[in-house]
């Protein structure tokens, strides 16, 4: 059997099994552009399937990347029937939760209802570290539930445009943390069940326990899915520089220690100055020399990975057309000699 690995994402783009695709890396390496590109390519390659691109980065960029406004609810990208985007907004989600709590407690005119007026719950919980990751995780759970219940739009594949590495690792730890938390809660509830019954009334306690068990089952399901390489994969994005390479290696090792599959690396912003005689300045030559040094190391370290080398374009990669143009290189690979002109052909966004 041939064990050579293609230096493109053709396999992933045409994959029919993957349900969750995470795109992550160090800040400023082009995660959003890469995740948008993967989503566009997948949606184009599999027109009969529905794709959802979720931004879990608190500093959302999806709207700017596509040049149209996305919110906390999934909305189709203009010009693509099978690709939707959403940006999880922690403050809006928390405001909703606050309003729900006010609606439930406020009618009785009790103290809690008064306290929550004016978004107190949102203000308090909004400042909790990791709340963005928790809310993203809730979205994943909601998505699974919706799919099971057949409600709303069904998505075959969800692509995550993640926050920089640290946030993403916290997000990926959540299933485990939640699972442990729920297990502990179950133990405590088992021990103090009769006491809880006497305080809250049996029916309410049963309801809480039922919900906890349901939540636990969902979390377990996500844990299983995230560690199944046929269902979940992580695409690392980096640039050919020392710190980015180091962080990518650490990210890959962390992910492997989580039993998560990672087999693709996108190396962005490459100059390919050797093949560009027309725009070959001294600075470009110097940077390309530096990039080549790390590219050699990347080739050596990641010979069993799909390493895709993407060019630094002359303009910003914003808007569906530009993204389409750029994203094709993910599927076919970038050839500096033949594709060199395309990087100067990007439309200027107003």
């Amino acid at each position: 059997m041939d064990y050579s690995v293609e230096s493109n994402l053709h396999e992933l783009i045409n994959s029919t099994t993957h349900k969750w695709i995470f795109v992550g890396g160090k800040g400023g390496v082009g995660k959003t552009t890469s995740s948008c590109s993967i989503s566009i390519q997948m949606a184009s390659a599999q027109p009969n399937k529905q794709f959802l691109l979720i931004s879990t980065d608190p500093a959302h960029n999806l709207s700017d990347a596509f040049g149209e406004k996305f919110g906390k609810d999934a909305r189709k990208v203009t010009g693509m029937d099978n690709l939707s985007c959403m940006e999880i907004d922690p403050s809006a989600a928390l405001k909703d939760m606050n309003d729900m709590a006010v609606a439930q407690n406020g009618s009785g005119g009790d103290g809690l209802g008064d306290l929550l007026q004016g978004g107190a719950l949102a203000d308090i919980t909004g400042s909790i570290p990791g709340i963005d990751e928790a809310l993203s995780f809730m979205e994943v759970m909601k998505h699974i539930k919706r799919q099971e219940e057949g409600e709303g739009e069904k998505y075959d594949t969800v692509i995550f445009d993640t926050a920089p590495t640290g946030h993403t690792l916290r997000f990926l730890q959540l299933p485990q943390t939640l699972s442990q938390l729920l297990e502990k809660f179950g133990e405590i509830a088992g021990k103090f069940g009769p006491m809880l019954n006497s305080f809250t009334g049996g029916a309410q306690n049963m309801d809480i326990m039922g919900k906890m068990n349901e939540l636990k089952a969902n979390v377990e399901k996500i844990k299983q899915q995230f560690t199944d390489p046929e269902l979940t994969t992580f695409v690392c994005v980096c640039i050919s520089e020392f710190l980015s390479l180091y962080e990518t290696e650490r990210l890959i090792q962390e992910l492997m220690s989580y039993d998560m599959d990672v087999n693709s690396i996108i190396v962005n912003q490459l100059l390919f100055a050797d093949d560009d005689n027309e725009h070959n300045c001294r600075r470009c030559q110097a940077r390309w020399k530096m990039q080549k040094k790390y590219l050699d190391q990347i080739d050596e370290l990641y010979e069993d990975f799909h390493v895709v080398k993407m060019p630094l374009c002359a303009g910003e990669i914003r808007g569906l057309n530009n993204l389409r143009m750029f994203s094709q290189f993910l599927s076919t690979g970038y050839e500096p000699k033949t594709d060199g002109k395309i990087i100067y052909e990007l439309e200027e966004q107003k």
């Binding site: 990926l172 485990q176 943390t177 442990q180 560690t227 220690s257 989580y258």
Partner: peptide
């Protein structure tokens, strides 16, 4: 390591 596959906090 705290992971989906391995047990820690």
């Amino acid at each position: 390591t705290p992971t989906p596959g391995k047990e820690t906090g």
